[in-house]
Design a protein around this nucleic acid. Structure first.
Lengths: 216, 216, 216, 216
DNA sequence: CGCTAAGCGAGACGGTACGTCCGGTCTTCCA
DNA sequence: TGGAAGACCGGACGTACCGTCTCGCTTAGCG
């Protein structure tokens, strides 16, 4: 795959050499993650300030500026860290897509779980904040996609490919596009408040996507 | 159904009665729209400030605060105004969805036009800015959807319903959900930079959505 | 001789045009003076910060930066204001130098008063701070001299000139230099802590200065 | 006379015992002196920072904090070191006051040399910086006087006492006060920018001081 | 036709947060 | 164990905007 150009830098890259990472205080790093997530949950992303994070974490502002370039950056890493800890707590396979042989059923199960997660208030605030920032800031957006969205999308693609091999999906379908038929509608409803999301809704999406809108 | 809570107001609605709108200066209003759109295009949404808009428009800050509650508000109206002027310039029917009897072809035409519009740099900056704000600010998000997205989505729904009556779409399909199969993937790719958008891509989306992923 | 270099400007004079002085808040100005003097007296000049002054005065920092360029500037004006109010309270002539015909006696009276003033803790802290700043910052130093020192020195020069006309001072003496014989020693002892200051000391100075060190 | 209070210490003397001075790096010490003097000359005292000195000297910050308590402290020692090296270079007696038998002439020679030194830009910046700090910080001020001013003043006092014995100065004159009549005016003009300093000026001072202002 | 009550340009104000700089302490690793 | 290096907490710096608040000045509409 061709090397992706690494997304423009808004500030012209002051060549700030990252300081010696081996001497970094893990204590401070964790405190900053915790503070950032707590503040976003409590007062919302726009009212979350670097100063506030530093104060809550009991950390000097410089310690934040030393390791991150922007508020969104901090939150992204904090959220990733949260995700990793959640994964470790839940067990790796909890996030895998089952393969019972019944594609529709398997997808419905996963999408229902996604709906539940999107509604979990613990995740909602930081997730929305990051998504919003990514809409406007392409650099962060790509990072968001690569590190948060992509792994999950890959699982869907894999499941579709398996179904293809089992003859349950047409061989000419590109799985990376196919999965968007049921994933993107849910994403848009949630992101842009274009409509309510529910288990019934995602079940419908899977049915529509698999069998098409046209009569057979 | 429980009464929908009407989207939280950040400031608890100080019941500030809009001042006498009949004496409003149209000259200032237009200057503010122009300044807002120009600034968003030039320096981006986050660096666009009320003060900057006021200065550029040659207007007192208070004149902005008198008529709008937030930066996003100004931009939303400015963008709507821009849209209206564009519609008037292009003729009403330019934005309608054709009905040649060939649903797939009609949808492809419209989606190709949408792709072109999304790529128009004149629209991109403010549109992204508003969408991003809407992700995080539910109140603005709903306004954004209602006033900008909904009219266009309605056209798609209407076209699907017509196709249903003509027997080209299964009768049990909910058009409001059906349209998401091809509209949402495009929206998500553009919004979240999850992938490139092109005419070929939207053509594929239409085919997948109409005929489904499963073999027939 | 060579042209005197006109007092260097530390920052290259950003041509910041003073804002509209007619709209200035006198309330804030006075509060800033009071806060500045109080803080210098309480915590000393180096620990007096612009931020602290603003907070104590209940004023935004910008209001200070709008009207003054530096901490020393604020204090200078505050001190001048204090002086003016003191003069008005004490009556104009309280600070004049008497002319009883007895030059030595008149000078001793005035120098004793100066000693008392230098020891007044209310004046000492800000006065020292300003003097110190003036030592290092020529621009402020000149302002300090012109607005605080000069008026008082002028009175001494006038008194010496009167004595000259009365034949009590040699006619070839330059009063502006002559006065330094008794004024500067006191100033240096106080400024640089080179020795104690007392009424006896200044009396001695006057005698030495009038009659010289050499035997007659 | 009451016991002199021993000059307040800003930090309450943490009894930090100076570390083992025998193992001290003379290399670092000298580098710090050089860096301090160079920085004060280049950017001025207020913009000279401990961090800057350390960086320029190629020294860790702790090495400075280990041996000195404050920026002024470093500079004072650096300046004293500079002075000692200058004395050794010029020969001891260069700074002595001559005794040709003509008091006025001898004093004029010495004061003219002082004027020249005060104008030497190499000395001016650090000297002013220290003097200014001493005005405000009594502890440093006394150290400044004792170690820098006093030795020179003592020479003047000695010369006056010799003149007294030779009958050229009245026997009731206190030499420590007498010398101030011509030394302090020069000091004040230089310190506070109250007037220009020149050879003619100091010559005049000597004449006035020796013969007094009053007619004989 | 003049009075009066808006809207308006301007911008000072009390604030909050920014991103930077430096003070002084502490820790690590080298000589 | 002194020193070079530099991360850390803290806190002030000077700037940029926020949203509110006066100021005079148009500019209607109404009396």
């Amino acid at each position: 795959m061709a090397a992706q150009k690494p997304a423009h830098a808004p500030t012209p890259a002051p060549d700030r050499p990252h300081p010696d990472a081996t001497r970094r205080s893990q204590r401070s790093r964790q405190a900053i993650y915790d503070a950032a997530l707590a503040l976003v949950a409590e007062v919302g992303y726009p009212k979350t300030t670097i100063e506030g994070i530093a104060a809550r974490a009991g950390v000097g502002k410089q310690t934040i500026y030393r390791w991150w370039t922007a508020k969104a950056d901090v939150l992204l890493e904090a959220f990733l860290d949260l995700g990793e800890r959640a994964v470790q707590a839940a067990g790796e396979e909890a996030y895998a897509i089952p393969d019972t042989g019944d594609l529709a059923a398997d997808l419905k199960v996963v999408l229902r779980a996604t709906v539940d997660e999107l509604r979990d208030p613990k995740f909602e605030a930081p997730y929305r904040a990051l998504a919003a920032e990514g809409v406007v800031n392409e650099q962060l957006g790509r990072e968001f996609v690569t590190r948060l969205l992509e792994p999950s999308l890959q699982l869907h693609a894999d499941r579709l490919r398996a179904a293809q091999e089992a003859g349950h999906v047409r061989p000419d379908i590109d799985p990376r596009i196919g999965l968007e038929l049921f994933v993107s509608p849910l994403a848009q409803r949630w992101l842009q408040h274009t409509g309510p999301i529910s288990h019934a809704y995602t079940d419908t999406l899977v049915d529509y996507a698999l069998h098409g809108l046209a009569p057979r």
